[in-house]
Amino acid sequence: TFTSIVTTNPDFGGFEFYVEAGQQFDDSAYEEAYGVSVPSAVVEEMNAKAAQLKDGEWLNVSHE
């Protein structure tokens, strides 16, 4: 299960995956970082959410 939350205070020191406002979700980078295949429906969902981000916001993507 993939989830996401919007934050204005990303923790770059941890093992977190963020999408910056104005960027798209990079499923290849996510797969490389976590060894998890990302279904195309999830990629579309995360890109739709990322498109709604305002300046200074980040989308924190995770999975269980």
Rank of each mutant, 00 (worst) to 15 (best):
G56T: 04
Y34K: 08
F2A: 00
A29C: 09
T1K: 14
D55W: 09
A50V: 08
F17G: 00
S28V: 14
S4T: 09
G13W: 09
F15V: 11
M46P: 01
F25E: 01
N60M: 15
H63Q: 05
E44P: 02
A29R: 10
D11P: 06
V36T: 05
F15K: 14
G13L: 10
E31Y: 15
V36D: 03
D55C: 11
V61A: 01
V6N: 02
E32P: 01
G56F: 06
V38W: 02
E31K: 13
K49I: 13
V61L: 05
D27Y: 15
F25A: 03
N9K: 11
A41S: 13
T3P: 02
N9R: 09
G14F: 06
E16C: 15
T1F: 12
P10A: 04
D27M: 13
Y30Q: 01
D26Q: 06
F2I: 04
A21R: 09
E64H: 14
F17I: 03
S4Q: 05
K54I: 08
S37D: 06
E64C: 14
F25Y: 02
L53I: 03
E44K: 12
V38A: 04
E20Q: 14
F17D: 00
F15T: 14
E20W: 15
N47H: 04
H63V: 06
G14P: 08
Q24V: 11
T7A: 04
A50W: 01
N9L: 08
F2R: 00
P39F: 01
D27Q: 15
K54Y: 05
E64V: 15
A50T: 05
E45D: 08
M46K: 00
G13T: 14
S37T: 13
V42K: 04
T7G: 01
E16T: 12
V19R: 02
V43E: 03
E16Y: 15
F17T: 01
N60P: 00
E64M: 13
Q52M: 13
Q23W: 08
T1V: 13
S37A: 12
F25D: 01
F12T: 06
E57C: 05
F12L: 09
N9T: 13
G35F: 05
E20F: 10
S28I: 14
H63K: 01
V19A: 00
S40H: 12
E45F: 10
T3M: 11
P10M: 03
S40W: 14
V38L: 06
A51G: 09
V61Y: 01
A50Y: 00
H63L: 06
A51W: 04
G22P: 00
N9F: 09
S4F: 13
T1N: 13
V36S: 04
P39G: 04
Y30I: 01
Q24I: 11
K54F: 06
S28T: 12
A50I: 08
S40M: 13
A21T: 05
A50G: 02
Q52L: 14
A48I: 12
N47P: 02
V61K: 00
A41R: 12
D26N: 12
S62K: 15
E20S: 13
F25I: 03
A41G: 09
N9P: 01
V38D: 02
V38Y: 00
D11E: 09
V38Q: 00
F25G: 01
Y34L: 06
D11N: 13
Q52C: 11
Q52W: 07
E20V: 08
Y30H: 01
F25W: 04
E64F: 11
K54E: 07
T1E: 08
G13Q: 10
I5S: 13
F12D: 05
A41M: 10
A29M: 09
A21N: 07
K49T: 06
E64K: 14
M46N: 02
T8H: 07
Y34N: 05
P10V: 05
A48F: 12
V42P: 01
Q52N: 11
G56H: 05
F17K: 00
V43S: 07
S62G: 08
V61Q: 01
M46I: 15
S62Q: 10
F15G: 14
P39H: 02
M46A: 04
V42L: 05
V36K: 05
A51C: 08
S40D: 09
P39W: 03
S40G: 09
S28W: 11
V6A: 04
Y34I: 03
A48Y: 11
K49S: 07
L59D: 00
A29V: 07
F15R: 14
N60Y: 15
T1H: 13
A41P: 07
N60R: 15
V36R: 05
D27T: 15
T3K: 10
S62I: 13
Y30M: 03
F17S: 02
D26E: 05
F25T: 00
K49E: 06
D27N: 14
M46D: 02
L53K: 00
E57F: 05
G56S: 04
T3N: 09
S37L: 10
S4M: 08
F15A: 12
H63C: 05
E16W: 15
G56A: 03
A51V: 06
N9M: 11
A50H: 01
A29T: 06
E32F: 12
G14E: 07
N9G: 06
T7W: 04
T8L: 09
V6K: 04
T8I: 09
A33P: 02
F15Q: 12
N47V: 04
E57N: 03
G22C: 06
L53C: 04
A41V: 10
T3S: 10
S4C: 13
E32G: 08
D11R: 09
G14T: 09
A29W: 07
E44Q: 12
A21Y: 12
E64N: 13
K49P: 05
A21Q: 08
Q23I: 04
N60V: 15
L53A: 00
Q23T: 12
G14W: 07
D55M: 12
T3F: 14
V38P: 06
S37M: 11
Q23R: 09
D26A: 05
F12I: 07
G13A: 11
W58I: 02
E16P: 06
A48P: 00
S4V: 09
G14D: 07
F17W: 10
F2V: 03
F17N: 00
V61C: 04
G22A: 04
N60I: 15
F15N: 15
G13K: 10
A33R: 15
S37Q: 12
V6L: 06
N47D: 05
G56I: 02
A33W: 13
A33C: 14
T1G: 12
A48G: 08
Q52R: 09
G13E: 12
F17E: 00
D26S: 08
G13V: 07
G35N: 08
N47A: 05
V19I: 12
E31C: 11
Y18Q: 07
K49N: 06
P39D: 03
V43D: 02
I5W: 14
S40L: 13
V42S: 03
H63F: 12
G13S: 14
A51K: 10
E44L: 10
E31R: 14
G13C: 15
Y34S: 04
K54H: 08
E44W: 07
P39Q: 03
S40Q: 14
P39K: 01
A41I: 10
K54S: 09
G14K: 09
A41E: 12
I5V: 13
E32Y: 11
E32I: 13
P39R: 00
G56M: 05
A21S: 09
F12Y: 07
V43H: 04
L59G: 00
A21D: 01
T3E: 05
S62M: 12
W58L: 02
H63A: 03
Y18P: 02
A51I: 06
Q52G: 09
Q23L: 08
Q23P: 00
G22Q: 05
E16S: 14
T8S: 10
G56W: 04
E31G: 09
D27P: 15
V19N: 00
Q52K: 12
E44S: 10
G56D: 05
F2M: 03
G56E: 04
F17V: 03
A41K: 11
V36F: 09
S62Y: 12
S40E: 11
K54A: 09
T8V: 09
A50P: 03
E45L: 11
V42N: 02
P39L: 03
E64Y: 12
E45C: 10
M46Y: 05
D11K: 11
T7H: 03
V19Y: 01
V61G: 01
G35S: 07
Q52V: 10
E32M: 14
W58V: 03
E16I: 09
H63S: 05
A50L: 10
Q23Y: 10
Y34G: 01
V36E: 03
Y18H: 05
E16G: 15
V61M: 03
A29F: 07
Q24D: 08
V61D: 01
N47L: 04
V43Y: 06
I5Q: 11
E32A: 15
V38I: 08
E20R: 14
F15H: 15
A29I: 07
K49Y: 07
S37W: 11
A51L: 10
Q23K: 13
G13N: 13
S40T: 12
D27W: 15
S28A: 14
F12K: 07
F12V: 06
D55P: 15
E31L: 13
F2W: 15
A48T: 09
T3A: 08
M46T: 03
V42W: 06
G13M: 10
E31I: 07
